[in-house]
């Protein structure tokens, strides 16, 4: 009998167990309304998780994701508020996020700055750039006449909130990209072993640039949904620990930080666990700080269980992998 469970299976099992536990213990957990609410509440996290997942599969990490999302969407809102048609404003914001992704990718692929550091600095830089040059407010509001944009955040289709559809669409798109397109496979190859990929003729550096552009694009989509859901964009989110939650979703689902492993399914599983956890604790009315402790402990135990079941080998561990 093969007892070796992958991290994905462990996390999935944990999620199911939590789900069952909450269903038994908590009234109103297993209602359709609550489940829809649960998925809806984590769909933004999930979309960002997909963006981060793509980068991590490519052996990188994008710590500027949340900052870019916040600043680019906030700039769009600022432009729209100052009279520009919303569509143009959003297009400019999208372009902005693409340029930031391009710069990120360039710094990492060509200047060879470690991704952790490049994107960390880029997050700070983009936030500062936005606050200094683009707008002066912390919070920017969605214009009232932007019904179709608001629909993305608050609309309901066939009784299901639109963000859930968008989450599904992003997941599906990323799945198709990773699985069936040439560049998706290149991305995985580069993440698995950049030198080997390069030797086989894959344009490794452009692929790295591509992955950061992809992540900031998807981040922009998540940003629009965020803004539409709460009718505003709070740029302070760029300085919060939200980005760590995104990383945790990805890694918890079982995408290894050493690259090349995992897929979109892992992101979904990770998102589900976080969603169930947060939802259950909210229903139980647990204090926010205590929620954080519980979340942290559960995350830690997931990683520990994974390490015990799939120990890292001293002989094959990659050097410089932190």
């Amino acid at each position: 009998m093969n007892l070796r469970l992958s991290q994905e299976q462990i996390v999935f099992g944990l999620a199911v167990m939590l789900c069952i536990g909450f269903a038994i213990a908590l009234d109103g957990f297993l209602t359709t309304h609550n489940i829809l609410n649960l998925v809806r509440s984590v769909s933004i996290l999930g979309i960002l998780g997909v963006a981060m997942g793509l980068v991590v599969i490519g052996r990188g990490i994008d710590l500027s994701l949340v900052a870019v999302m916040a600043i680019s969407v906030a700039w769009s809102l600022q432009l729209a508020a100052s009279g520009m048609p919303l569509l143009y404003a959003l297009a400019l914001g999208f372009l902005f996020s693409l340029v930031v992704g391009l710069i990120n990718g360039f710094l990492i692929a060509y200047v060879e700055i470690p991704p952790i550091f490049a994107t960390l600095a880029m997050g700070t830089l983009v936030y500062g750039f936005g606050r200094y040059f683009l707008f002066n407010l912390d919070v920017l509001y969605v214009p009232d006449d932007a019904e179709y944009m608001i629909w993305f955040g608050q609309g309901v289709l066939f009784g299901i909130p639109v963000p859930i559809f968008l989450f599904a669409a992003v997941c599906f798109g990323a799945y198709i990209f990773l699985r069936y397109t040439r560049y998706g496979r290149y991305l995985r190859a580069v993440g698995d072993n950049q030198l080997a990929a390069r030797i086989t003729g894959i344009p490794a550096r452009p692929i790295v640039v591509m992955q950061y552009m992809l992540s900031s694009q998807i981040g922009f989509i998540a940003g629009i949904i965020t803004a539409a859901s709460v009718l505003s964009m709070n740029t302070r989110i760029a300085n919060s620990t939200f980005i760590y939650d995104v990383i945790l979703v990805v890694v918890l689902g079982g995408i290894g930080l050493s690259g090349g492993r995992g897929g979109i399914r892992n992101v979904i599983v990770g998102t589900l666990l976080i969603g169930i956890l947060l939802n259950g604790m909210t229903i139980m009315d647990i204090q926010y700080t205590v929620q954080n402790v519980i979340k942290g402990v559960i995350l830690l135990s997931a990683i520990v269980i994974d390490t015990i079941l799939n120990p890292r080998d001293e002989q094959t561990a990659q050097q410089g992998d932190i």
Binding site: I116, L257, V304
Partner: peptide, 22 residues
């Protein structure tokens, strides 16, 4: 246990921060 340093300390960062908040 040979966990990944980045992740592990990220999680302890969150836990310890939550304890501080409490």
């Amino acid at each position: 246990l040979r966990l990944r340093a980045f992740l592990t300390t990220l999680v302890t960062l969150i836990i310890v921060r939550a304890i501080v908040d409490m």
